[in-house]
Amino acid sequence: MKTETKIGFILLITPLLLWLVLLIIIPHIDMFLVSIRERVGVRQYQSSLANYGTFFEEPLYIWTFVRTATMSILATLITLVIAFPASYYIAKMAKGRTQSVLFLLCLVPFWVSEIVRTFGWMILLRETGLVSSVLQWTGIVSGPVEMLYNDTAIMIGLVYTSMLFMVVPLVTTLESLDDQIIEAAYDLGGSGLSILREVIIPHAAPGIVAGSIVVFMLTLGNYLTPTMLGGKDSLWFTELIYLQFIVRFNWELGAAFGFMLLLLSSIIVWSVLRLTGQTLEKTMG
């Protein structure tokens, strides 16, 4: 009996271990080894931290790095602010069929690929696009307006892409909040705002943190949306990595950039967890 359970356990854990070791751990070890070597001649390498040095010496790299982090945080916050009322409505106010329909509507955009979705936004926002035409037709502006290739366009795209990943954990945690608790707070003299602050948000905290972490990670590592909506000069850190690997064939520097990005996201996630007093088990469980 005991050996049987053991075999069952091994069988179940094997795919997970294979996945982790082959697809995540081994490539990362290899990447790390690549990042700490320096090319000194043709097919001649020596280990050094020169690649990381390059990163810190070049202001453009650091600037892009900081900019990517700030915009990702901002996108996460905007997503949260938009998703919270929507999730609250889906979880607490909508009933029965409406609830599932609304939830489905959040999912619908994800039935088409990210590239098609982003092209959709380009069609809306470009100079000859829908928004520009409507503005000209109503006479608000006299000539065509270019709304693509700026930070606002990037932000719109990022928030739009991330919405579902914020709504799902929020709806789940908000649904677990007993309606009676909200009523009790109201009954005891609470106003809408104070109930939100003292009852609803503390209860939803694990969902808020979980959603924010997922959205932040996705945004930070997003390549398509910033490139398409932000144009050539969008200065997203993943673009720099792409550039080093594919255009420059400088795998060493690209790998170092990759590790800097990993480090950055880890630090930010860790500090958010510390700041909100949440643990990873609590938010992901």
């Binding site: 608790i181 009790a184 707070a185 109201y186 009954d187 005891l188 003299g189 609470g190 003292e198 209860h203």
Partner: peptide, 28 residues
């Protein structure tokens, strides 16, 4: 309801799980 001089003990009590006992009692 938040202004009525009436308070209610709910079926499942509906204590605030995110607060300690003192904060629950002091909420009102």
């Amino acid at each position: 309801p938040n202004k009525r001089p009436v308070n209610m003990v709910f079926q499942h009590l509906a204590l605030f799980p995110m607060m300690c006992v003192a904060d629950n009692i002091g909420y009102g």
